[in-house]
Amino acid sequence: MNPMFRNTILVALAAIFAAAPWALDEFSLNLVTRMLIFGIAAMGVDLLVGFAGLVPLGHAAFLGLGAYAAGILTDMGLESAFVVWPLAIMVGALGAAIIGGLSLRSSGLYFIMITLAFAQMIYYVFQSLRAYGGDDGFALTRNTFAGLIDPYDSRAFYFLTLAITLVIFLLLLRVVASPFGVALRAARDNEARLAAVGLPAFGYRLVAFILSGALCAFAGVLLANLTGYITPGYGSWPQSGELLMMVLLGTAGTIWGGLLGAAIFVALSEVLSEVSDHWMFYLGLLIVLRVLLAGGETTKLLKRLDPRRRADG
């Protein structure tokens, strides 16, 4: 993409995001916050899908781990986000370390199904937490920020999420461009060569897995705070499928694709659910068509909008 074009887009995006709280009503603003939150999770999943070449079908488990850890810690009397959030993210990272350590012994299809099975296991743990509503879930009192931010102010929460998303986005761009990111892609493309250079593919993949798990946990924490409610559904396997969809909708292997895909997905489900009670059917249809009509449609569209590309024909 040519730099002029890219910068114009970036400035336009920044303006849109900065103006959003004043242009939108509370409902729509929360929807945008939701897009950002799922964007964080999807970027984390993209790290595995797009860069490590691994397809996890169980990352909703980490979304759920983050949410439940935050909810339970808050319920135990810790209120400050400065304490609860890092702890909840660490729970997610720890879960990812264990699940990743076991699942990464396999690859390809095995990896898909094993991550799915572990996620189901965690889902049933959530379901069995009777003290926390079992199948029905439980309400969460939003975490506080030592008086700096009012957690019940939608605008404040939106800007907080926006800032977090931006920092994570920039960090991830650095991560995938770093030697670590190069090694991760090398492990995807040719594991034998990487091993010949003396670098352990397993280690790189595990770190990527933990990082993506932690990001999903962070998204879970934010989502729980946004909705004020936590259910086992956070960790359900259709949710894991949706995270993959977001990555694919936005284009895997780009990081920003996660943000774009999450935004498209959240907007799509919102629009479809207003049009029809049976929006899941149309969502399914769109996904099937999206996959069948070859890859990278959104990217192609962006490239077509790029003036230089268009000049090239």
Binding site: I112, W279, M280, G284, L286, V291
Partner: peptide, 29 residues
Amino acid sequence: VLRRLYARPHIDQVLATFGLMLMFNEGAV
């Protein structure tokens, strides 16, 4: 659908068949 997916990466297969599942579940409703 499936015929077009045999040569595709696993993620495409997972998503397309997941989409089919959504369609059938909601179609049954």
